[in-house]
Design a protein around this nucleic acid. Structure first.
Lengths: 185, 185
DNA sequence: GTCTATACGCCGATAGAC
DNA sequence: GTCTATCGGCGTATAGAC
């Protein structure tokens, strides 16, 4: 699994081969097939393995107020670096998502990621609405809109090298203030 | 070029091979290489070819007021169908975008698409700001935020089969009313 | 321009020894 | 569990005839 992560970061999902995973794990290619019958099995197992780490990652939102946690989420998304191993792995993760369009098993596995994110966001927004920090927005719809916007920005940064993660900060702020956060004036 | 389009829609960028393009164009594989030295050349030429069609596509925004044209853009993006040839081609286009992360030539070609979209959107928003239909928002930042949000939603619909294009309509409307459109009350 | 034939490599997966 | 060896297939690209 660790080897798979490195290979994905190195050469992308497109370049993921059982031989490269074997090299990264310092074993023979056939041993990879001994543990995972097919390459598809390997990938699905990897996605389940990495999902647990993702859970911890989302814990990084901390405690604080609903507004703090929402802002922490935005920062977390927009702070994905472009040139280190983590960034390159995220590129591979985007490749995997497009592969999911034609592969049911990948799609099911990846949907659990997005629903995990949504659940966290929905909880934060519901909390904010209840305490009066936020306006009376639809938590689920707002969560998904925010997820899509940030995902789109991160994708453009990682793949097209747009300066999206910076450029989008102000508009996101405008959205939060104009639609989500309770008016303070 | 037409054959390439069909192949991409059929089997995706991952499944794009010179042999399949040859089959779709009803010629031999070597003839493809006669016209395009490498597969990469073929893809770059294809992207330039398809960009012209994209220009016409964006003309579909029509005339109308700035608000009408902005809404037309949103509808245009959110009405991409998931199961016809056009939808599958868009999936392949997403694959191509992720490939751009590791390929300079693809990246340059694709950036021209996004800057084309941005230019159209910026013009609409500038117009709206001038006429007073819109508030005094930053046209470029607003355009990109909107592009990212819609792109994220379309991507999730096409790849993960989320019902994003529907779910996002209300939040987008809330964004337009709460941030972009001039207050009418 | 268009073809057939082919070189050459890498892929996923399996067989079989240890 | 782990290895080496190997099969069959498909990928890009090229050579050379017409």
């Amino acid at each position: 699994m660790v080897g798979t992560y490195r290979v994905l970061a190195d050469v992308g999902f497109d370049g993921l081969t059982t031989q490269r995973v074997a090299d990264a794990a310092d074993c023979s290619q056939s041993l990879v097939h001994y543990h995972y019958d097919t390459k598809e099995d390997l990938v699905v197992a990897f996605l389940e393995w990495v999902r647990e780490a993702e859970g911890d990652y989302l814990e990084g939102l901390g405690e604080g107020s609903a507004e703090d946690r929402l802002r922490a989420f935005v920062d977390l998304q927009l702070s994905i670096p472009r040139d280190d191993e983590h960034g390159w792995f995220n590129v591979a993760f985007l490749e995997l998502q497009t592969a999911a369009a034609r592969n049911d098993r990948y799609r099911d596995a990846l949907r659990e990621f997005t629903s995990m994110v949504d659940d966290v966001l929905v909880a934060v927004i519901e909390d904010g609405v209840e305490t009066g920090e936020f306006r009376d927005v639809d938590p689920r719809a707002t969560a998904r809109f925010l997820r899509y916007a940030l995902h789109g920005a991160v994708g453009a940064t990682l793949t097209l090298h747009e300066d999206a993660t910076e450029a989008v900060r102000a508009p996101v702020e405008a959205y939060l203030e104009g639609v989500v956060l309770a008016e303070t004036d």
